[in-house]
Design a binder for these strands. Structure first.
Lengths: 188, 188
DNA sequence: GGTGTCATGTAATATGTTACATGATTCT
DNA sequence: AGAATCATGTAACATATTACATGACACC
């Protein structure tokens, strides 16, 4: 059970705030998704197993105007599993950076293909510029007074700072990539 | 076949330099591994399929003092597959950042557990400091004169710059994380 | 004699992705 | 009337990880 993965992200998210599979999926699209991606199908499957293993307990909640949902809460056993995992060493990350492969691959493409890559990098850059703007807006909204945060909020905030730092670094790097690609275009 | 993955990283690597499965695995531990991780088991399996599909061709090379190896080269068909993929939009990255989950999870750990996390972050930071040093040494060694690089080398270099930028950003962020964790410790 | 590197793989299991499926309500 | 959102899942398939397996040679 070493190094297991989605389970722990779900445990953290449910400890911060109990919720349904659907709500979890939405959180994974937003906040948690900054450092752990998962689709609703994965989440439902893992939640089912976690419930069977007694890591979480579910309560049916009727809602008016909306379908019923099943609200999950972390059990004492689930909390123990999480703390056990927290004390394991951090696993090396599995990196998968599409764009970097494409940039190196551009060496084997023709000028038209490289021109298309420039457009694609521009599009990709715009996406991440928006993402950074959303992170910064979220920081302003959720952590307006940084000096008065409780422990959990401070930890959430420093993780958000990581997302912001990552996006800024990425934008700067994409500018370097664009300079390089445009430079190569002008030479040919 | 959209969005397929390891295949393309292998094609780029073999176009830069033909080689055996073992050599590819070593490259994935080093240079390519900065943006795409893969184990030798994965590589052998995918190479087999790529050979069956005619994307690469293999030549047996006898070596003295060493086991024979099978050297792979990208075929014309493989090159076409790669350029086809290069012209597809970049897929959103699947992020999986263990440490960020643990930092948020630390909110639900006891003081002893948080102290242990500080030690773990320190260890992790030292690992990445070494990695950055290796990248910088590699940059000096492989790109001593930046003004006189050919197209392929310039693209390789800008990708390496990305790795360097990432590691620097990570180290700065880890310092922020340490400040936050130590601050919480002193308050308790 | 033991450790490490070179070189190749198989098998079992776990995880992740994609497509499909349902049904109510709210908004335009 | 049609599209979007809320809410839950199953099934089939693809990919990744982990453990196991073999054998030669080089170096200490």
């Amino acid at each position: 059970m070493l190094g297991m993965a989605l389970e722990h992200a779900i445990l953290v998210s449910l400890l911060e705030q109990p919720g349904s599979g659907y709500e979890l999926a939405r959180r994974f699209e937003r906040s948690i998704g900054r450092f752990w991606t998962a689709t609703h199908q994965q989440i439902y499957r893992v939640l089912k197993r976690m419930e069977a293993d007694g890591w979480v307990t579910a309560v049916d909640v009727g809602q008016d105007g909306r379908p019923d949902k099943r609200d999950f809460t972390v059990s004492a056993a689930g909390r123990e599993v999480l703390t056990g995992w927290l004390h394991e060493p951090v696993q090396p990350e599995a990196v998968r950076h599409d764009l970097a492969v494409k940039v190196r691959g551009a060496a084997f493409d023709d000028p038209a293909g490289r021109a298309a890559l420039i457009d694609e990098v521009v599009r990709y850059r715009a996406e991440h510029e928006e993402l950074l703007a959303r992170y910064l807006a979220g920081e302003k909204r959720d952590f307006p007074d940084i000096s008065s945060l409780r422990a959990g909020e401070r930890l959430q905030h420093v993780v958000l700072r990581g997302g912001i730092a990552y996006e800024r670094m990425l934008l700067d790097w994409l500018d370097e990539v664009l300079i390089t690609l445009r430079h190569l275009r002008e030479e040919s």
